[in-house]
Design a binder for these strands. Structure first.
Lengths: 246, 246
DNA sequence: CATGCTACTGTGGTCAGACCACATCGGCGC
DNA sequence: GCGCCGATGTGGTCTGACCACAGTAGCATG
């Protein structure tokens, strides 16, 4: 009943309140938000409105909620953009907001750039990029008795590991989202592969080639190899897709 | 299918139900979702749980809701990823999930690639990219009596117009999000500019140079000019920021 | 005195019901 | 035939009530 204001949506007021507290440094990652009831009382809105705002924050990867009591309970500020980006891309693809071809084009842009950056970093005198995680995944992909779906999951993890190695959290989260957006199509595309054995062998070889070019600090080769790797795969599995330029 | 173990959350069931209906083609953009009460009854959950799911869908840019009656009322499937991406990036920056430096680095990657693509498209025999909207914005920025904040808004719109011209909706939405994420910093940065007149003149000139390179189908020049334009501006306003490589 | 179990407390999660503001549309009165 | 006006149904919000859960204090017991 607190004559708050003109804002037509109460839950938006909650969202803005939390965002402001974040920007002001009042709330830091790891800290807890006030309880839903307290937040509702403070802002003069109902608890349901608070919950709707918290739901949005949770979907955006801003908070994690837990029931019960103790320091682990409640809404805790985290920053896990990967899941949020994945949900966003997945839903946008489902609603035809993001054409699959644009997802692939964007993936091409980001991965090509990441590979080039990694190679450049390898050439510098400073710390070389950490490719251990990526290579461990490549080793796992050499296992001969992998289901195609398992191989695909490792493949996705490898590409994500490259992004992580670049140290760019925005690119990492975005690539996780892009991958999620086309996951369904990737699984469908498995059925189109005639000779899976040959295809997986080629993919493995291409992966090694990319890492090799990065290690050799050959940015141009890293770029072109990862580009050809991705566009070649999509050309094979989705020949009807609009050809990706770039 | 990454069938994650079911969480006992009712609102997630609603979310997944809507997503499946989207994927199955039952729900198309422009169509209306069932009413909240009907949805609650159909899925056997409370209306508040339905509302929490709808709130997430709205935040993700999937639906638009309107009160009242008639064909425009209710929850209508739309696909406006720009707003969702902006909110996501803005919140992640606020929660320190996305370092500002990574936002800038990603912007550099995407815009450089977009400029190159546009120049390549201009060289092809097909339809040249539509740069009219971008150039109209440049004309507006030539107005001598613009507040710095107004100039900045037009600047952002110009860069977004380039992305739109590339025809990649994922990149367009992502760039809108990146811009939103650093909007606060950009406004703060205005205070650091000593000679705004000189700076704005330089920015205008650089913008024209980018468009000129695209029109001339000089991809290399377009890439380097947009790269220098962006990194130069951030180097000027945020010299303390970790130097962006790439 | 130490220990183990048990209520207590506070958290989010959910549901039900009740209003309100709003926009449309059918029907009554003119 | 025309115009106004209430019936209707929508989302938006609030309230209050439960539930499951996880710590924690405190009692009972050895």
């Amino acid at each position: 009943m607190t004559h708050d204001s003109e804002s037509p949506r109460a839950w938006r007021a909650v969202l803005e309140h939390v965002e402001r507290r974040l920007l002001d440094g009042d709330l830091l990652p790891g800290e807890r938000l006030p309880g839903e009831r307290a937040l509702a009382a403070d802002l003069g809105v109902g608890r349901s409105s608070v919950r709707e705002a918290l739901r949005v924050l949770e979907a955006m990867g801003l908070i994690r909620t837990a029931s019960g009591s103790g320091p682990n309970a409640g809404a805790i500020i985290v920053a896990t953009p990967g899941g949020a980006m994945s949900a966003l891309m997945r839903l946008q693809v489902a609603a035809h907001g993001f054409p699959v071809a644009d997802i692939v084009r964007t993936r091409l842009i980001l991965e090509t750039s990441v590979a080039g950056e990694l190679a450049d970093a390898a050439s510098g005198t400073g710390t070389a990029p950490d490719l251990d995680a990526a290579e461990r995944l490549l080793d796992a992909m050499d296992s001969p008795d992998l289901e195609p779906a398992e191989f695909l999951a490792l493949d996705a993890a490898f590409h994500l590991a490259l992004a992580e190695a670049s140290g760019n959290q925005v690119v990492t989260a975005t690539m996780a989202g892009l991958r999620s957006g086309i996951e369904g199509y990737a699984l469908d595309g498995l059925a189109r592969i005639d000779d899976w054995h040959a295809t997986s062998a080629r993919l493995r070889s291409e992966h090694r080639g990319v890492v090799e070019a990065i290690r050799a600090a050959d940015a141009a080769a890293a770029r072109s190899r990862i580009h050809d790797h991705i566009s070649g795969y999509y050309a094979e599995t989705f020949p009807e897709t609009t050809p990706v330029n770039a």
